[in-house]
Computed example of a mutant assay.
Amino acid sequence: MADIEWTSYPDRRSARRAAVRKFHPDIGGSADALRAALTDIDALFADAPSASASASASASGEVTVLRSFRGTVEQLAKPVRVRYKKFRARLPGARTYTEI
């Protein structure tokens, strides 16, 4: 993969996104071509300060999934919501499907 193709992107993230859109196996690309493109992009943007941690993870083949704060809070709140609904159903005057 030529580095010239990836130098037109301002940062590593946008270059990687473009590579995934172009070479992802789910849209007809090959995994080897995607891996090669991502390796080229990581090498090209290796001197960028934000690329240092994720470049080492990409080189070892690991994939890190980052979770947003909102997703974490929703996951923590789910058991509380379920317990609240069960509690609310036992209160006097609570309507259930069979009573409507």
Rank of each mutant, 00 (worst) to 15 (best):
A33Q: 11
A48P: 00
S30R: 14
D42F: 02
Y9R: 05
L66I: 06
D11A: 08
V65I: 14
T96D: 07
Q75T: 10
G29C: 09
G61E: 04
A2Y: 07
T39Y: 06
K85G: 12
I41R: 06
A36H: 10
S58W: 00
S56D: 08
Y97T: 15
R70F: 05
S14C: 06
P79V: 03
A77W: 09
Y84K: 15
A51Y: 00
R88L: 12
D40L: 04
L91R: 12
V20W: 00
A33K: 13
L38Y: 02
R21H: 13
R81A: 10
R12N: 03
F69I: 10
A43I: 03
A18I: 00
S58E: 03
L76S: 13
R83V: 13
V63R: 13
A15S: 04
K22H: 07
R70W: 05
E5R: 10
Y84R: 15
H24Y: 03
S68K: 07
E74K: 14
S58K: 05
A89T: 09
A43Y: 03
A18D: 02
A77Y: 10
R88S: 12
R12H: 05
S8V: 11
R13H: 05
M1A: 15
A36M: 07
R90T: 14
L66R: 11
S8L: 08
S54R: 11
R81E: 12
A46L: 05
A15Y: 01
R21N: 15
Y97W: 10
R83G: 15
R12C: 06
V82W: 00
S8A: 09
G93C: 03
V63H: 07
I27L: 13
H24I: 02
L76M: 11
L66D: 07
R16K: 14
F87C: 13
A48G: 03
V65N: 08
A15F: 02
S68N: 06
